[in-house]
Write a protein that binds this DNA or RNA. Structure first.
Length: 642
DNA sequence: ACCTTAACTCGCGCCCGTCT
DNA sequence: AGACGGGCGCGAGTTAAGGT
């Protein structure tokens, strides 16, 4: 299987996953046998497991390794091969199963098989129904009719090496939207009937809402999708994501609620860039917001306009939106942030727009004709009949354009004229991107994303921004005040308690340390600095060998074994000051001795009651951490900090 | 307009396992 | 024993979104 086939397979897997999610959601929402038939991706299910890899392989076989090649009925109508009916009774044997095992691994295939059987039991009694959104579609290039848009997509990719035409996708999108609207209508009509047992996605939505209003309960979107096929599938998706499947690569897949997919399915094909931006997700996932990843190409488009005018008009924003494929909201945000940044960076920079620019280049004209029109921006009273736009005919190459501008005494424009010239062609191609392709490619490796990060190298899409609840922030802050470097078990504990992914907690602590450091550095008063350094309770240094331990019991264990091996009195004496700052947990930790003094400590209560940010402990730990790093390694590999 | 912050990128250093 | 490379955590800086 070559690379193209693999990518095509991955794409199909993505769609199948969405289809399955959709199917499950609809089943749960309606709880009726006909729910599956309402699935806009219903033809993928075809009465069998929609997550059936054998059907996937069959679809893939358009170009070769045929299990169930598309059949033609002689009238030009090609229908995708039925995944199971024409297969042997044991469909997951033979070549298909072997390929699955080779490609996806035993565990995933086993899970798939189990879940497929469960779903089949549920779907066995589903009556046939016409699914409007899966009507036949024609290939515009060879005028062949296909039974579904998926078949058409496979056909176009394999036979024509081109994406599905835009207009076809638009039609599909419209049908899909109508189908969804219909389903919502039916949902609302039946909602009262099953109020005693609300469907899962709606329940999650309500919990998110109530969480936002009360801000007192921990968010549990991940753990809520815990029953039935949805959970099975979520596990599969997460697993596939970990295995490197695009679109499913989020290591914290459970954080993504089914609402996310539902919303994505309803909006995804309409806007190419909406997959990753918050404007499309925020409606259905209010606790999360997606972070837009502005690509190089998009950035160039924005920068072109910004260099000309940092306060674009609505029309210009719309233009940019179309050109860059970004929501207008994102563009406004970018302009706001960029303007602020530029002003902060250098008041004397060329981007000081206290003096607005006087001229601009007509990008549209340049894109179309290759001619750079320099036009005045100021809306001075126009004199009728006077030449309004001094036009500079510019050659197509950037170097020539620069030369032309210099000759015209407009060298200052070269800075933005060059990128205009260099990227005009690419911008055009960007605007003409097929939305269906964009919808898919946005989540696959096929899309060339030069800025793709190592962490998100598969999708290039930034993770949703976590909105911490008050409870989560309080807990994190309290922990941070005591321990700026949580260990793995602390991390696990926090993760469980706060229902946050470990990664999110790691990032939070990194940011918190950064913030604390910044505040510390900005402290003008040396006394305050000393206060931080002297604030006890977050690091434990052996007074004899100066080695710093991050846990009290580690210090005690060290002292008992080495420095204070035969001198427990001195040990208790030296540790007395430290013990007064210990929490109950720390004192009761394994290896920790009985308190040296009988006086009760209230340090824990003091710390935990302090909701506001007490940088003392954390900073002392930070400082000691640095000192310890210089003095020697207090950490072992097994006890690595975050 | 300005500020805050979660998420991200990049580079560095440390630790450990493997190889020579 | 030393070199080497991979994995990992962290700091510093950046970016995009949201709040004031």
């Amino acid at each position: 299987m070559d690379k193209q086939q693999q990518q095509s397979t991955l794409t199909m897997i993505n769609m199948l996953n969405m289809a399955q999610l959709f199917s499950n959601m609809q089943q749960q929402q309606q709880n009726t046998p006909t729910a599956a038939q309402m699935n806009p991706f219903g033809s993928l299910c075809n009465g069998n497991s929609p997550f059936d890899f054998s059907s996937l392989l069959g679809a893939q076989n358009v170009s070769g390794q045929t299990q169930n090649p598309p059949s033609s009925n002689g009238s030009g109508v090609v229908t995708p091969a039925p995944p199971a009916e024409e297969e042997p009774k044991t469909p997951k044997t033979g070549v298909a199963l072997r390929k699955m095992l080779e490609k996806y691994g035993l565990e995933l295939v086993t899970q798939d098989s189990e879940s497929a059987q469960r779903r089949k039991r549920k779907l066995d009694h589903v009556p046939d129904e016409v699914i409007p959104e899966m009507a036949q579609v024609d290939c515009k290039q060879c005028e062949t009719t296909f039974g579904s848009i998926w078949a058409l997509k496979a056909h176009c990719e394999e036979m024509h090496q081109s994406p599905v035409p835009t207009e076809v996708v638009d039609e599909f999108s419209d049908r899909l939207q109508r189908a969804l609207d219909d389903m919502e209508d039916r949902d609302s009509s039946t909602e009262n009937d099953d109020s005693c047992d609300p469907p899962e996605p709606k329940r999650i939505k309500r919990e998110i809402k109530s969480e936002r209003s009360s801000a007192s309960s921990s968010p549990t979107p991940t753990s809520k999708a815990s029953n039935g096929t949805n959970s099975d599938l979520t596990n599969q998706l997460a697993m596939m994501g970990m295995m490197g499947f695009p679109f499913l690569n989020n290591p914290f897949m459970p954080m993504m609620t089914p609402d996310f997919f539902q919303n994505m399915a309803s909006t995804g094909s309409s806007t190419s860039a909406s997959m990753g931006n918050g404007s499309s997700n925020s409606a259905s996932s209010p606790a999360k917001r997606a972070r837009t990843r502005i690509t190089d190409e998009q950035l160039k488009v924005l920068r072109q306009y910004f260099d000309i005018n940092n306060s674009p008009s609505e029309n210009q924003i719309k233009e940019m939106s179309i050109k860059a494929g970004l929501p207008e909201k994102v563009i406004k945000h970018w302009f706001r942030n960029t303007l602020f940044k530029e002003r902060q960076r250098d008041k004397d920079s060329p981007y000081n727009f206290s003096v607005p620019p006087q001229v601009s280049i007509d990008l549209d004209t340049y894109d179309k004709t290759g001619e750079a029109k320099i036009t005045p921006l100021k809306s001075e009273p126009e004199k009728q009949g006077a030449p309004k736009t001094p036009t500079i005919s510019a050659p197509a190459t950037p170097a020539d354009l620069l030369s032309t501008l210099n000759k015209a005494g407009l060298g200052s424009l070269a800075s933005f004229a060059l990128p205009v010239a260099a990227n005009a062609a690419s911008n055009i191609s960007t605007t003409q991107q097929n939305p269906f392709t964009a919808f898919l490619n946005h989540n696959t490796e096929e899309k060339p994303t030069p800025q793709v990060s190592a962490a998100n190298s598969v999708t290039g899409r930034r993770a949703n921004r976590t909105r911490f609840t008050d409870f989560q922030l309080r807990t994190l802050q309290q922990f941070f005040d005591k321990q700026a470097y949580p260990k793995d078990d602390d991390l696990e504990l926090l993760s469980r308690r706060l229902q946050l992914s470990p990664r999110v907690i790691v990032v939070w602590f990194q940011n918190a340390r950064q913030k604390a450091r910044k505040i510390y550095e900005n402290q003008p008063n040396q006394e305050n600095n000393e206060r931080f350094l002297k604030t006890p309770g977050c690091n434990f240094q052996c007074k004899r060998c100066q080695v710093v331990f991050q846990r009290y019991y580690e210090l005690i264990q060290h002292q008992q074994k080495l420095c204070y091996k035969d001198d427990t009195v001195a040990q208790q004496k030296d540790n007395r000051g430290v013990e007064e700052t210990l929490s109950d947990d720390e004192k009761s930790a394994p290896g920790a001795p009985e308190p040296a003094s009988a006086q009760p400590t209230t340090a824990t209560a003091t710390v935990t009651a302090n909701v506001s940010m007490d940088l003392g402990g954390a900073l002392a730990q930070l400082m000691s951490g640095m000192a310890a790093a210089a003095a020697g390694p207090p950490r072992t590999r097994g006890q690595r900090n975050l």
